[in-house]
């Protein structure tokens, strides 16, 4: 398996599209998190620097990072689609790679990409947190850090779903279009036919809920309590954030979906005529 992983990384790291998408992913994320704190809150007429200070930076960066997970999902589709396009799954089986090894090697690449996404957010979070926090304490840094690890699971889930689509449709173009349409509007439309108690368990909903929108209003207005003594306003109390499953439950269900994506992909790989 060590040799199989080496060959997997030779072909992946030397693929020009891989470098382009990774650079694009990192650059877009850094650009957004650099610009966002500079905006003034329209109602409170104050900056959003608080959002990127400890400990709020972890929730903010996990949420912003999740926007770009779709890029990693598309990258997973392209990496699998290329194997179909160049008929290299066939060549590798001829050369002695088992069908299971084909799948595991791709999963290791995706785990590595998820680790990269995690590292990007961890490093940026520490840098931005240090720059924007008024005071730095141990608990301030580490309190909400586990949220970032949820992003790791989320990005892996995005890529596993992308890989499943790529194995179903083979063609890069069809897989990418179907994948994006599945996120919007196919699943949201499907969810409309189900009651709230069921619709919150749909895969896209679960995966998205792992990194919920931080309550900007609550975070920003908290700093005003000291001034006027009133309870902070929040998007949640105003009904602007829907009730959803807790992050822990969502994470567990998401892991369940990852297992389902894996077995569905394995079923295809084992039966396919390459």
């Amino acid at each position: 398996m060590k040799k199989i992983l080496k060959l997997e990384f030779i072909k992946t790291l030397n693929y020009p599209g891989f470098k382009t998408i990774i650079i694009l992913h990192a650059a877009l994320f850094v650009l957004v998190v650099t610009i966002a704190p500079q905006f003034k809150h329209p109602m409170l007429k104050m900056g959003l620097e608080k959002l990127v200070s400890f400990p709020y930076v972890w929730a903010t960066f996990s949420w912003v990072g999740s926007w770009f997970n779709i890029l990693l999902g598309i990258l997973a589709i392209i990496l699998v689609g290329n194997e179909h396009q160049f008929r290299m799954f066939r060549k590798q089986i001829l050369d002695g790679v088992s069908r299971s090894q084909l799948l595991y090697a791709k999963m290791v690449v995706m785990l590595t990409l998820a680790l990269y996404a995690l590292a990007l957010i961890l490093l940026s979070g520490i840098v931005f947190g240090i720059i924007y926090s008024e005071s730095i304490s141990f608990s301030g840094i580490f309190d909400k850090m586990p949220l970032v690890f949820v992003l790791f699971i989320q990005s892996f889930a995005y890529m596993m779903l992308g890989m499943l689509f790529a194995f179903i449709f083979k063609s890069n173009a069809i897989s990418i279009v179907t994948y994006i349409l599945f996120f919007f509007p196919v699943e949201p439309i499907l969810r409309a036919f189900f009651p709230d108690s069921i619709d919150k368990f749909f895969p896209v909903k679960i995966i998205s809920n792992l990194t919920p929108l931080p309550d900007f209003l609550e975070i920003v207005s908290k700093s005003m309590i000291q001034v006027n003594g009133k309870a902070p306003a929040s998007l949640h109390s105003m009904g602007l954030l829907p009730d959803s499953l807790s992050v822990l439950v969502s994470t567990l269900v998401c892991i369940g979906y990852i297992v389902v994506f894996y077995y569905a992909t394995k079923l295809i790989v084992d039966r396919r005529n390459f």
Partner: peptide, 27 residues
């Protein structure tokens, strides 16, 4: 050692790297 139909290789890799992939796959 097998060759089925047309040659299949990664177009963006050089010959050495393409054969390295075959060598690794075959152990």
């Amino acid at each position: 050692g097998s060759l089925l139909e047309v040659p299949y290789f990664y177009p963006y890799l050089n010959l050495e790297r393409n054969l390295m992939i075959t060598a690794l796959a075959r152990g």
